[in-house]
């Protein structure tokens, strides 16, 4: 009993240490972004919003933010549409190849982004496409596609096929079945996939580095600003990025929970 409780304490300490290790840097970044000092050191002097103000006035930052939002938005559209179509298509028309295709589709997830970036650059050169935000969007879509495909596929596995049969039996056309039955039931998975695509794209550096022309995205701007050291503006950008990413992840989590709850109730 005693051994048990001392090991529990040890485990608790270890957990606290890991959490501290994970979150302390993020926390410090946020703290320094509000600190009235141009260097990131203790002690904290005074609360200020001036680093956020100077960011808002920074032309390079504003363009990069706009570019990042355009790229992430477009990636969400392409990756989600393609991933969903692939998920539904594979599930419906080639059920025998489901497992094989799922492993195949998850391959890009395991390729390091460095390799993916080089491969994409080589490909764009080969087919003579000029590098621009469009090529970045294509690259990010490649990165996000497997996530969408796998999330949608997972949802389809738990899908009662007799729902679609029942709809057909009641006179629904294939298009009607998709709009009225399949899509609403896939909606939570699709929304989750879209949010994950957004986050993946919004944070992406390596693939962007290889596939962009003269346009910069937010992480690229951070990267270039870092050459002159960590400025409070970078802390401000980082804080904003973390907030956006956390919000996305939070929304995704809520959606997943709610749909799981629905599924659980249905299974009663």
């Amino acid at each position: 009993m005693k051994a048990h409780s001392s090991s529990t304490i040890l485990l608790g300490l270890w957990t606290a240490f890991v959490l501290l290790f994970l979150f302390a840097p993020l926390f410090l970044v946020a703290v320094f972004s509000f600190n009235d000092s141009s260097i990131s050191v203790f002690p904290i002097r005074a609360f200020t919003l001036r680093w956020y103000e100077s960011l808002a006035a920074n032309e390079a930052f504003r363009t990069a933010l706009a570019n990042s939002l355009i790229v992430a938005g477009a990636t969400v559209v392409f990756a989600t549409l393609l991933g969903m179509a692939a998920g539904v298509g594979v599930h419906r028309y080639v059920p025998r190849l489901r497992t094989a295709l799922r492993s195949g589709a998850s391959l890009p997830m395991m390729v390091p982004h460095l390799i993916l970036g080089i491969a994409l650059l080589g490909f764009y050169n080969l087919v003579a496409i000029d590098l621009s935000l469009t090529t970045v969007i294509m690259g990010h879509s490649v990165v996000a596609f497997p996530y969408v495909f796998l999330i949608v596929s997972a949802r389809l596995v738990g899908f009662d096929p007799s729902l679609e049969e029942a709809a057909r039996d009641l006179g629904a056309s294939t298009a009607r079945i998709f709009w009225e039955i399949t899509l609403p039931l896939l909606a939570p998975a699709i929304l989750t996939a879209a949010l994950i695509s957004f986050t993946l794209s919004f944070d992406e550096v390596v693939v962007t580095f290889f596939t962009t022309g003269t346009d910069n995205t937010l992480p690229m701007v951070i990267w270039s600003m870092l050459r002159v050291g960590i400025t409070p503006e970078i802390n401000a950008i980082a804080t904003l990025t973390v907030v956006v990413s956390c919000a996305m992840a939070g929304v995704a989590e809520v959606i997943i929970r709610r749909s799981r709850l629905t599924a659980a109730k249905k299974g009663e």
Binding site: D160, S162, L163, E165, A166, A167, D169, L170, I181, P184, L185, T262, K266
Partner: peptide, 14 residues
């Protein structure tokens, strides 16, 4: 002219 009542009922959950 036929309609089916499925074993799982297949009611549309949404």
């Amino acid at each position: 002219h036929t309609r089916m009542v499925f074993q799982s009922y297949a009611l549309f959950p949404h």
